[in-house]
Amino acid sequence: MRISLKPFFLSIMVLLILFPFVYLLWLSLSADWSFPQVMPDYFGLKNWKALLISETGLLRSFFQSVIISVSVGFTATLSGFVISRNIAYHPKKNTLTLLSYFPYIISPVVFGACLSYFFLKLGIFGQMTGVIVAQFMISFPYALIFFNSFWGEKTKNMEDLVSTLGGNRLSSFTKVLLPLAKGMLLVCFFQTFLISWFEYGLTSVIGVGKVQTLTIKVFLFIREANYFYGALSSCLLILPPLVLMYINKKYVFNKLT
């Protein structure tokens, strides 16, 4: 009888994928765990309870990150949708599309350093507004590129049809274009939210330690060798992407396929 090794390898693969997540959760529940101890001295909810203590600032960072990422995702998606239309119908479409890639050809830290002078002049350096504007500047081109495929001859004909039926530009957007692009808008919002959520380089330069997003916090804890809080903040960090992935699969992906 031939034994199939497929289930064995499959189980190994699943374990390897799940291990970092399980280990992070384990670490976040642990304290006083030093070499060569096999198990931690403490295992419980102590770290998670510390979330509520203002000292760690984790809860504050979490909500600050949510506000920043939702703002960036929302503004980049909506403005990207509207402006990508102008680019798509512009005679110099190819040049403008090429320019959209500009923020991605230089490192976010260098990009942040270039921007810092202007942000300082505008008085938004080290402010949450400054971080939102800076992150918008890298999410917005993504949205422009993302929506490029939406605009084509058929969409243009539909817009023209709406106007000959008596509709103006606003009704064309609200009654036809936005409902048509609903799925794409949601996906773009998720993507730009995630770009902002995991952004580190630009945020650390523009935020100058005053704006501590969750991603910044994770690095701070790791630098301090506080692995338990680091693991805890990492657990918080992957929570919104997991929720978004679930919503994406349930409400968007299933409808698109």
Partner: peptide
């Protein structure tokens, strides 16, 4: 006059029904 004020409807070869 702008297209929306002309009361002239243009019909394409494609039916262009709004899918939603």
């Amino acid at each position: 006059l702008e297209a929306e004020k002309r009361n002239i409807v243009y019909l394409y070869q494609e039916d262009l029904l709004f899918p939603h």
